[in-house]
């Protein structure tokens, strides 16, 4: 995904303005001359300045604002990769909701199996690797390193 410099520069400049506005709204401590707002204010001004430089110095070569060329393509590999990319984002985001109730082993196996399938792995490979890898990770993190991982419905079996 390529974004034209004049667009990314403008967004940065706007973001800089937002940061400046946000930093002026930070509460001031009475008697403190150099407070919590100093660095964000400086960074906001820097982002505004750099954003304007990027936006104004970009060549007007007629390029589109946002170019999604690298996500296009009709061959089966491209379609498969696109779906895998969507799942990598969606599946991990789903983990924010499902990780605690399902536990790491079930969620991890599910996520990994779908990802492998979308990337074209064969089912026997998926059936062999997913449980093995996830249970090994669970043992290493939870058993050896004492990282508290939720085990979900498998808590009784894995403890």
């Amino acid at each position: 995904m390529r974004i034209a410099d004049r667009l990314s520069g403008s967004v940065l400049a706007l973001f800089g303005l937002l940061v400046i506005w946000g930093s002026t709204r930070l509460p001031q401590v009475p008697g403190v001359r150099f407070g919590a707002d100093l660095l964000p204010l400086g960074l906001g001004i820097a982002l505004l300045g750099f954003g304007l430089i990027i936006a104004l110095s970009s060549r007007r070569d007629g390029r589109v604002w946002i170019n999604l060329e690298d996500w296009r393509g009709k061959d089966s590999d491209r379609r498969r990769d696109r779906l895998a990319a969507i799942w990598s984002l969606g599946g991990l985001a789903l983990g924010l909701v499902l990780f605690e109730p399902l536990g790491f082993p079930l969620y991890g196996m599910g996520f990994m199996a779908v990802m492998m399938a979308l990337m074209g792995a064969r089912w026997p490979v998926i059936a062999l690797i997913c449980p093995g890898f996830i249970l090994l990770l669970h043992y290493v993190f939870s058993g050896l390193l004492r990282v508290s991982l939720p085990a979900g419905p498998l808590a009784g079996i894995l403890s």
């Binding site: 990598s88 991890g108 996520f111 990994m112 990337m119 792995a121 690797i129 993190f141």
Partner: peptide
Amino acid sequence: VIVPMILVCCFL
């Protein structure tokens, strides 16, 4: 195989 493994490691 490696890409899904990396993603699980990223999560963990």
